[in-house]
Structures are given as structure tokens and as C-alpha cells.
Design a protein around this nucleic acid. Structure first.
Lengths: 238, 238
DNA sequence: ATAACTAAGCTGGTCGGACCAGTAAACCCT
DNA sequence: AGGGTTTACTGGTCCGACCAGCTTAGTTAT
């Protein structure tokens, strides 16, 4: 039996990153606080300074700490100066549960990004584009029962990213990828709420509209879908 | 004489990151190509493997390479799988010059993000918010002659980010920060094109509209400004 | 007593070499 | 020629020593 599973080994570095992330997001440290030095953490937790340093580099790129060379490491005002990676960290800590506020924000952005892509693609689409999208969609339908929800969410993300790629607007693709992690969390939620077959049917309706060069129609379908999702979410929380 | 200038010291890590970035973006390596091993780079350039490894971690987060553990490091298909950091790298390599396509994409996104923020803030703004925005704007006007264009661009970025912060929609702030680098490149261009005083006047018009709780008006002002900018850009390139 | 200067002790950052756990290709035996 | 084993090589982790610059405590000169 071949074991292709990724090792669930928690390295010192990962452990440390999670520990500090949790402590900062839970409010144990406050923005502006000066953290103990890398050396103190290293000796206290029995690991090398390089490991601690490398972990702090990651935490800085996540927008959770500010590193001031030759001075110290300070907790960042992450809600002010954070970026998408900060959001990813917050979402992960909440067990991939998205708050309503985050969901709304993400969906509005998605509407802006994908709406543009839909319009552009509807204008420039070739026969090959349509055939390719249909084959990808068929693939998703085929394997939809055999794979986990998270993997299926990834497929949906890739499908929508494909729209951006085919539209020829490279920037949209790059933005789309930036929202990858939170998008996955969203799709898992979506698929749980509407069911797989309903979601796949929608993909096919999108393709039909693009084939008919009806960019506005595709945009509206997307907008309606988002609106309906937010309404359902509203009902759910009541 | 005190030297407060940030050290222009190029570390081995930075040097290596730039070198590989340049080589990949210039097409010396193509997507899918397998790069030499970390050890080869390290010994060839006379630096430690830790440094090379750390640099490749950064390059991976920039979306320029795919690291396959126990196998090798491969050049990524960065236009497909890249993110905003990839865009930053591309913009930086071009000397902060933005292509028309990138500019259009960025501005559409900004309209989506800031438009939302303007509407929200117009509804919930307090007297303190208005007073604060006015004081920030006054600060910009005061120091506008004494500082460089890039620093001024940073001030404009912070002003618009402040709109997101005050609107209470945290997600918008995080998205806004994500576009920081390309936004700065945009603002430098904008200030060069319209002049400083015109740009500051516009900030004050925004404040007036928010004070009057006219979110739609602020949105329109933003939309018109963007439209005009793109038209000018069009003329310029002809 | 106060101001200015100096030196020591911090800080993050770099570095190279050792070790680990997997991959993948070369190898040998059948 | 085919199949199983070995071995070289990969990225990933970790350590402890070293570096340069900031900060502060200490000292000296005014």
C-alpha cells in the first residue's frame, strides 16, 4: 500500500507560527506591543534562532508583526495594515468559517473581478474556448461524487479562474489567485448549501451565455447568484 | 552628521531574489523549467544554503517558482498561477511603469473597493470622522511641496485607505493594502499628470460629499475621475 | 549638576555546515 | 528484458557562531 498522504508532521517552525498567530489574533498581545527577542523564544522553546527568525519572516508577510531590524519585533495593527494573507490567517483560525462581513466583502469583489472577465470573454470567446470549458465542466461532474468537498471547491475555483485566463485580462487572474484561500472556504460553504449538481448546472448556464456572447447575461446570473446566497445566509443566521 | 538613511546594503538574499526574478521575468527560464538545486546556486555564488532556501521561499510566495519537495524547484506559469505579489514584481522590474492593461485592471478594482467604502462611510460617518479627514488632508497640503513624489503618493494611498478604515468594513482595508505597491506606482503617475493641488482639491470634494451623506455622489466623483484618467492615458499613448 | 561622549550589550540578519526524509534514477540480480 | 533494491540527490529543518547597527548605561569633561 503506497502512502501518498502528506506527512502530518508539525515542524518547530509551523508550531511556532501557529502559536504566535493564535496569541496575536486572540488578543494576548496587542498592536504595538514589543515581543520577546528571537533568542528568548528560541531558548525558551528549545529551538534554533534561525527557525524562530524564519517563522517571524512568515508572520511579517502575513501582516501580523512588524520587524524593526536592530530594535525588535512588534505586534502589527493588522486590521489597519494587514493584507489578504492576514485575512487567510484569520479565516484559518476560525476553522475556515467565514463571517458574514467577510463573505459579503469577498463576494462584492468577486462580482467586480469576474463580472469584468465574463464581459470580456463573451466578446472574444472562440469555439475552442467553449469546448474547453464544457470539457472541464464535464470533468467536474464526473468526479464530483468521488472526491471530498474541499477538493471539489478547488475545482470550482479553478473553473472560475479559467474564465479570467481565457478573457485575456491577466490582471484579473492574478487578483483571483490572491483570493484563493478565502475563496475555497466560500465554495465549501456554497456547495454545502446548494448541493453539487445545482452548482454544476450553473456552470453550464454560464457557458451557454458566453457562447451566445451575452456578457451582460452572465454578469446578471452571477449577481443574482450572489444576491441569493447572501439572502440565504441572512435567513440562516436568524 | 547623523545618517538616518536606510542602509543601501544589498544582502545576499536580496541580491539572489532580484537575480532570479529578473531571469524569470526576462524569459531566460521558461515556465516548467527545472532550476539548478539550492546547493548548486549556493556554492556557485558563494553563499549559504539557508540563504538560498529562504530566497526561494520568498520567490515561491511571489508566485514565480513552484517548490516540489524532494524533487526540485520549477519555474511557475506565473501569469496563470501568480498573485498580486507577482504583479508587484513585474511592475518593479519595469521601473514602476504601469502598462495600460494593468492600470485599467487596478482602477476597476479600486472603484469596486473604494466605491463600497464611500457608500458605507457616507451612511455611518460621524463629525469626528469628517474633522479627522479634513486634518489629514490639510497635512498633505502643507507638506506637499517639501516631499518627494513617491512619498506624496504614499500619503494619497493612506488617505484613501483611511476611507476604508473609517467605513468600518475591515475587509476592504485588507484588500486595499494588498494593492499597495501597484497603487503607489499609479499615484505617482496620477500626480505627475494632474498636478498636486488639483489632486488635493479632489480629496476635499470627497470629504464634502461624505459630510453631506451623499455616498452615490462620492462614488460618481470617483468613477468620473477614473474615467477621465483612462481617457487621458489613451490620448497620451496616441 | 549637566551635558556630551564612549563603550558595552542588546537587536534582527546572515551564514555554512550537519542532518533528515523523501524522490528518482541507476544499478544489479534474476 | 524485467523487476526489485540501492544509492545519490532533492528540498526542508535545525543549530550555533558571527555581523552590523541601534539603544542604553556608564563615564568623563565641562
Amino acid at each position: 500500500m503506497q502512502q501518498t498522504n502528506r506527512a502530518p508532521v508539525i515542524t518547530n517552525k509551523d508550531f511556532f507560527i501557529r502559536k504566535i498567530t493564535r496569541e496575536i489574533l486572540s488578543g494576548k498581545w496587542n498592536p504595538g506591543d514589543k515581543l520577546p527577542s528571537e533568542r528568548e523564544f528560541a531558548s525558551e522553546l528549545g529551538m534554533g534562532k534561525t527557525v524562530v527568525h524564519s517563522a517571524f519572516e512568515k508572520l511579517a508577510s502575513m501582516g501580523l508583526v512588524d520587524i524593526k531590524p536592530q530594535s525588535g519585533i512588534y505586534v502589527a495593527d493588522y486590521m489597519k495594515t494587514g493584507n489578504i494573507e492576514t485575512l487567510n490567517a484569520i479565516v484559518q483560525l476560525n476553522g475556515n468559517e467565514l463571517s458574514k462581513e467577510v463573505t459579503t466583502g469577498i463576494l462584492d469583489l468577486r462580482l467586480a473581478i469576474e463580472g469584468m472577465a465574463f464581459r470580456a470573454l463573451a466578446q472574444c470567446r472562440s469555439e475552442e474556448d467553449i469546448a474547453y470549458l464544457r470539457s472541464v465542466t464535464e470533468d467536474i461532474r464526473k468526479c464530483s461524487r468521488g472526491i471530498g468537498l474541499e477538493e471539489l471547491a478547488e475545482r470550482f475555483f479553478v473553473w472560475h479562474r479559467e474564465i479570467c485566463i481565457l478573457s485575456g485580462k491577466n490582471i484579473l487572474t492574478l487578483f483571483m489567485n490572491t483570493t484563493h484561500d478565502v475563496s475555497i472556504a466560500f465554495w465549501v460553504n456554497y456547495l454545502r448549501m446548494y448541493g453539487t449538481s445545482f452548482a454544476i448546472d450553473r456552470l453550464e448556464r454560464f457557458i451557454d451565455l458566453i457562447e451566445a456572447r451575452d456578457g451582460g447575461g452572465a454578469y446578471n446570473l452571477l449577481a443574482e447568484g450572489i444576491e441569493d446566497y447572501l439572502e440565504r445566509l441572512e435567513e440562516q443566521t436568524l
